[in-house]
């Protein structure tokens, strides 16, 4: 199921020749549109990511499944199609940048990085253990492919804005993709960053809100409602795309439109927290605890049916 970088680039060239041209003067790369085959592959990747998350968390004995599962389709689309990366040269200057603002979804990011070949999938079993490169929250100094150290909510979009400013300054083609939680939007700093991104006209910045409707203490609507989300982002000067965050076609299509948009763009992706695992779906309780071995078994059953785990 793993795609090598070469296959990936080859397929991209073929698709690219279909002729998506960047508009004149526009810098951010635009991805070729999706084919039915690729869509199916991405769906498989998403399932694989979910399994890796469940396994890693069960092994670690702690961590955050709910918010990792909810954005697996988004992350799969970014890491296995939209973003240009070079696992053999993690700091390749022209790579697209991904900032996991909701740093507690680290296991999903690690699974994606392993899936792209930044390190071995076996290493996922070291998650959260002493001396592991895979810290509980992303550490850019320890893990190849991690662009920024995150975990303190509310800061990621600001980092992404700074990165995008740097890219703009250099006239770079790479883009910056930031993935935020919907509860995270309660942090005032997110709106400082939103204001700045529009102010600086950051064409090369795409934010994605994992709108799973839940945070730790309950539904976001009960704890501290950030709605109406789309209106807020629009009022802050952003291009807004409201999509189903589990529909690869929709995610991909919105990302491509966002790439071409003038100014910053945000995808408000409606998702289900714990997506794919029956007993975790929509359950606040599964925000921050690991499944037992027993539960892990059931979860994998949900995700891949009779197939062998691991």
């Amino acid at each position: 199921m793993k795609i090598s970088l070469r296959d990936y680039r080859d397929s991209r060239e073929v698709m690219g020749s279909a002729g998506v041209e960047n508009p004149p003067g526009f810098r951010m790369r635009i991805s070729p549109s999706l084919t039915a085959d690729r869509q199916k592959t991405l769906q498989d990747h998403a399932t694989r990511l979910r399994c890796d998350v469940i396994n890693a968390l069960a092994e670690a004995g702690s961590g955050h499944p709910g918010g990792s599962l909810s954005c697996a389709d988004i992350v799969a689309t970014l890491f296995f199609d939209v973003m240009e990366l070079d696992p053999e040269n993690a700091r390749w200057p022209d790579r697209d940048r991904f900032i996991l603002a909701k740093g507690h979804a680290a296991p999903l990011l690690y699974a994606a990085l392993a899936g792209r070949g930044f390190f071995s999938r076996d290493e996922l079993g070291t998650l959260r253990k002493l001396s592991s490169r895979l810290q509980g929250h992303p550490d850019m100094r320890k893990t190849p492919g991690v662009e920024a150290s995150t975990g303190s909510l509310g800061q990621g979009l600001s980092i992404a804005v700074g990165l995008a400013l740097g890219g703009q300054l250099d006239g770079a083609a790479w883009g910056v993709y930031a993935l935020l939680g919907d509860g995270e939007l309660q942090e005032g700093q997110v709106w400082e960053a939103a204001m700045a991104a529009a102010h600086y006209g950051l064409d090369n910045l795409v934010a994605i809100v994992d709108n799973n409707g839940l945070q730790i203490d309950g539904p976001i609507a009960e704890v501290m409602a950030p709605e109406p989300l789309a209106d807020k982002w629009r009022a802050f000067g952003w291009n807004v795309f409201e999509i189903d965050g589990h529909d690869i076609w929709a995610i991909h299509g919105a990302l491509v439109e966002a790439q071409g948009a003038t100014g910053p763009a945000v995808l408000i992706a409606r998702t289900v927290k714990g997506k794919g695992v029956s007993f975790m779906e929509g359950e606040c309780d599964w925000h921050g605890k690991a499944p037992s071995q027993e539960e892990c078994h059931v979860a994998l059953e949900d995700l891949i049916g009779g197939e062998a785990r691991g």
Binding site: S158, I159, E192, A193
Partner: peptide
């Protein structure tokens, strides 16, 4: 071109600085 006023938003300023550093500045 190389000056960025964050406005009255010091937290955002510090993280924008971090982002610019990540971009090689």
């Amino acid at each position: 071109d190389r000056f960025f006023n964050a406005g009255i938003a010091e937290q955002n300023m510090m993280n924008m600085a971090a982002g610019l550093a990540l971009a090689g500045k």
